[in-house]
Simulated scan of single mutants.
Amino acid sequence: MSSAHNKSAAVAATLADIDAGRTPDAATLRDAVRALLSDLAKRAPGRSVEVRVPPYGAVQCVPGPRHTRGTPPNVVEMDPVTWVLLATGRMGWDEAVTQGRIRASGTRADISDYIPM
């Protein structure tokens, strides 16, 4: 089975668990988060925003000034389930912000133009 297929399967399995009201398996959720972060980095190449989904991953993305040292000025952080829901269009950016499910700082931290994917 190809790596891309495994990643798609991880996203599908995670969404199925969420839809059924189950807690996604940690390894499957990790793979889904990493696959979707990778997709974001490809869709919005750059290094001006850091998107963090602890404990599973982080990427730098979005065109603009490059950050190289210390804490990035533009950071978006959320839990893994929120990231999967946002990236797949199951939850909107404004809804997640209003519910306090996203912590975003910096003038470029709104990545809503790049999601869902």
Rank of each mutant, 00 (worst) to 15 (best):
14 T>S: 15
14 T>N: 07
15 L>N: 07
15 L>Q: 11
16 A>W: 08
18 I>D: 01
20 A>Y: 09
21 G>P: 12
22 R>N: 15
22 R>A: 14
23 T>Y: 07
25 D>L: 10
25 D>C: 02
27 A>P: 09
28 T>E: 13
31 D>T: 14
33 V>A: 06
34 R>G: 02
35 A>S: 14
37 L>R: 01
37 L>M: 02
37 L>I: 07
39 D>H: 12
39 D>R: 15
40 L>K: 02
40 L>E: 03
42 K>V: 08
44 A>Q: 00
45 P>I: 10
48 S>D: 07
49 V>M: 09
49 V>R: 02
49 V>L: 05
50 E>N: 06
51 V>P: 00
51 V>L: 14
52 R>F: 04
53 V>T: 01
55 P>Y: 04
56 Y>N: 05
62 V>S: 01
63 P>Y: 03
64 G>V: 05
64 G>D: 06
65 P>H: 02
65 P>A: 09
67 H>Q: 13
68 T>D: 06
69 R>N: 13
69 R>D: 14
71 T>F: 02
72 P>I: 02
72 P>A: 12
72 P>V: 06
73 P>F: 01
75 V>E: 07
77 E>A: 04
77 E>M: 07
79 D>N: 05
79 D>Q: 06
82 T>K: 11
83 W>V: 03
85 L>H: 05
86 L>N: 01
89 G>L: 08
89 G>C: 09
90 R>D: 02
90 R>T: 06
91 M>Y: 01
92 G>L: 07
96 A>S: 06
96 A>Y: 08
97 V>F: 08
98 T>S: 14
101 R>F: 11
105 S>K: 12
105 S>P: 03
106 G>R: 05
107 T>Y: 05
107 T>G: 11
107 T>F: 12
109 A>R: 00
109 A>D: 00
109 A>I: 00
110 D>V: 09
110 D>A: 03
111 I>R: 02
111 I>S: 04
111 I>W: 00
